[in-house]
């Protein structure tokens, strides 16, 4: 148990040492900061209330966009599977959303809805097509044999949903979430850097750019990685718990 842990710790320490050595040789805190500078920047951020407010705001907005896309993407996917005409009509829109660069959307969204809710909109747009398409793929992959079985045993639509469609869709949705969670954070923060809404992580990154404070940039990046990983783990855990609840019938 502790053996691989020690090994991993050792490897991390090695790379931190390499990083420190590289910073020492380059010796320019704008071009390349040392791990010690990052820790120092981090420590100076922690006591400020603005730091926590920014994390809270960005977290709230991005997760709101993600959750909205999660539910509506699955719902739209189910409707598209059930009504092929709807799917045909939606096809070009989904294709459009997927192919337009995030940066174009950000600028468009800035004009439409302003900067405050920018991250909600952008993370929604990035995640929606993934969930939509994965839901359809999962439904299309439903075992035909089981559907025949349901017909023979006169399953009600609710029972079919629960016992056949849901288990078939779940692996696809889980994969969609894994991809979508990472992308919603990356695109949400990128949108904030462009739109610079106040009290957000993106605004802080923007400030780090203006003041060429590479230490802050690194510190904030670590925060983003940490918060998004936590959100991802938490969400997937909740999803699994929900699934287990679903699979316990009697």
């Amino acid at each position: 148990m502790s053996q691989p842990f020690l090994r991993k710790g050792g490897i991390l320490l090695f790379w931190a040492a390499v990083w420190q050595a590289a910073a020492f040789m380059i010796d320019n805190s704008i071009l390349f900061v040392s791990p010690i500078d990052v820790i120092r920047a981090f420590l100076s951020l922690i006591p400020s209330s603005d730091f926590w407010i920014s994390i809270g705001c960005s977290f709230g907005k991005i997760s709101m966009g993600f959750l909205g896309a999660f539910f509506s993407g699955m719902a739209a996917g189910a409707v598209a599977y059930r009504f092929p005409l709807f799917r045909e009509f939606a096809e070009p829109v989904i294709l459009l959303i997927k192919s337009i660069p995030v940066a174009s959307f950000v600028i468009l969204a800035l004009i439409w809805i302003g900067s405050q809710n920018l991250a909600v909109f952008i993370s929604f747009l990035v995640v929606f097509p993934i969930l939509y398409e994965n839901t359809i793929a999962g439904l299309e992959n439903t075992d035909q044999g089981l559907l025949e079985m349901a017909q023979v045993f006169s399953f009600s639509p609710m029972r079919k949903l629960r016992f056949i469609y849901l288990p078939s869709v779940l692996p696809y949705v889980t994969v969609g979430c894994r991809i979508g969670l990472g992308m919603s954070w990356k695109s949400g923060i990128a949108a904030e850097v462009i739109g610079v809404p106040s009290h957000t992580i993106g605004e802080n990154l923007y400030m780090a750019k203006i003041y060429l404070s590479t230490g802050d940039l690194f510190a904030w990046t670590i925060v983003i990685i940490f918060v998004s990983t936590c959100f991802e783990k938490l969400f997937l855990l909740l999803l699994q718990k929900g699934v287990r609840l679903c699979f316990r019938f009697s």
Binding site: D143, G145, L146, E148, M149, F163, I164, P167, F247, R248, F249, S250
Partner: peptide
């Protein structure tokens, strides 16, 4: 043709 994720009872 059983629902694999569910128990025999279910």
């Amino acid at each position: 043709r059983l629902c694999e994720a569910f128990s025999p009872l279910d």
